[in-house]
Amino acid sequence: MQIVSDVAQCTLGDIAIAAAAIFAGWWLLRRSFWPPTARFAFAVTTVATGFLLTVVIEWASIHLLARWSYDARMPVLPYVHVGISPVLQWLIVPSVSLWLAFRAERSGSKPT
């Protein structure tokens, strides 16, 4: 049962990071509507915010709070010593998602 709780907690954390990153994109670019007119700037701001939040949360969870640790085989980023896979998740998934959303919006199609 602990695994269900852990997965739920990680999922909620990912949702919070995504919401904060999107909000940061809107706030920093002073946009309050979809789709943002400055798509590239919005995407860069959103992905960069998600990346930075992920690094900070991972670092604090590992080094300050000792909530989890990585296996010795986990590749980590130099200097901050956080896992590459959670960081890549926040570089790849939002980039692809935003690209698909902007592409769908440009073509006039609605997501189903």
Rank of each mutant, 00 (worst) to 15 (best):
M1L: 07
Q2F: 05
Q2G: 12
D6P: 01
L12T: 08
L12W: 12
G13A: 09
I22W: 10
I22Y: 11
F23M: 06
A24G: 07
L28F: 13
L29H: 07
R30D: 15
R30Q: 15
R31K: 10
W34N: 12
P35T: 07
P35W: 05
P36D: 09
T37I: 04
T37P: 07
T37S: 12
A38N: 14
A38L: 12
A41D: 13
A41I: 02
F42D: 00
A43V: 09
T45W: 00
T46H: 01
T46C: 13
T46V: 11
T49N: 07
L53A: 12
T54W: 01
V55F: 04
I57D: 04
A60N: 06
A60C: 05
S61I: 01
S61T: 09
S61W: 01
I62C: 02
H63R: 05
H63T: 10
L65R: 10
A66N: 15
W68I: 07
Y79I: 15
Y79N: 10
V80Q: 12
H81M: 03
H81A: 14
V82D: 00
G83A: 12
I84A: 13
P86A: 10
V87T: 14
V87A: 07
L88F: 09
Q89V: 05
W90P: 00
W90I: 03
P94H: 03
P94N: 07
S97T: 14
L98Q: 01
L98C: 05
W99R: 08
A101P: 07
A104W: 09
E105S: 15
R106I: 02
R106M: 03
S107K: 12
S109F: 08
S109A: 10
T112D: 09
